[in-house]
């Protein structure tokens, strides 16, 4: 996998347009889904995806294969998303949440409270309502399937923080989906 990534990156650096198109084909769909869920706006997601790949094209010379190309691209994408959301928050005259926000609300219920057949639409809506730090970690871990050590790398946080964010996200989602 790493060898294939390094070869693809080398071809891109050498100016092989087909190689960069291949890189886009391999990752655009997942990255677009992630960015769309982070921003909640198709228009913003298109702009951000474009910025991510343009930055990737400029920065490929610095790719050393220490992580997979996918992880590297996710990190670029997440940085763009968080910058975008913070910028949007600042424009709206409010500060957005940091990666550590208030403790998640836990309903005082013991039995399972989420409907067994929770719908994707309801879950999408609940994810969109999460604080951005929880949302980022949850999307990377539970939706995209990254391990905590990879989530930590992508978000630039510790593995413990990643675990804590995902736990709090699940708690919040549980509360929202039970309503």
């Amino acid at each position: 996998m790493r060898t294939a990534d390094l070869e693809l990156a080398a071809r891109c650096r050498a100016g092989d347009a087909d190689a960069f198109a291949e890189l886009y084909r391999q990752h655009a769909r997942r990255l677009f889904s992630l960015v769309l869920r982070m921003t909640g706006s198709a228009e913003d997601a298109e702009d951000l995806l474009q910025e991510v790949f343009l930055q990737a094209h400029r920065k490929l010379a610095g790719f050393r294969g220490e992580s997979t190309l996918g992880t590297w691209l996710y990190r670029l994408a997440m940085n763009h998303c968080l910058d975008h959301l913070r910028g949007r928050g600042a424009k709206m005259g409010r500060s957005t949440e940091s990666l550590d926000v208030e403790d998640a609300f836990e309903p005082a219920a013991y039995a399972p409270i989420v409907p067994t057949a929770v719908s994707c639409v309801d879950l999408e809506r609940a994810i969109a309502a999460l604080p951005e730090g929880y949302r980022a970690a949850f999307l990377l871990h539970d939706v995209e399937g990254f391990e905590h050590r990879e989530v930590a790398k992508i978000l630039g946080v510790s593995e413990g923080t990643s675990k804590s964010q995902v736990h709090k996200a699940r708690m919040k989602l549980r509360a929202m989906l039970s309503q």
Partner: peptide, 24 residues
């Protein structure tokens, strides 16, 4: 555990979104 597993299972099955061709 039951609720988290339910959420996790549904999250892993969410659809991917295809970017429009104009982005490329």
């Amino acid at each position: 555990v039951a609720d988290f597993a339910n959420i996790r299972r549904t999250a892993a099955a969410l659809d991917e979104h295809l970017p429009p061709p104009r982005v490329w």
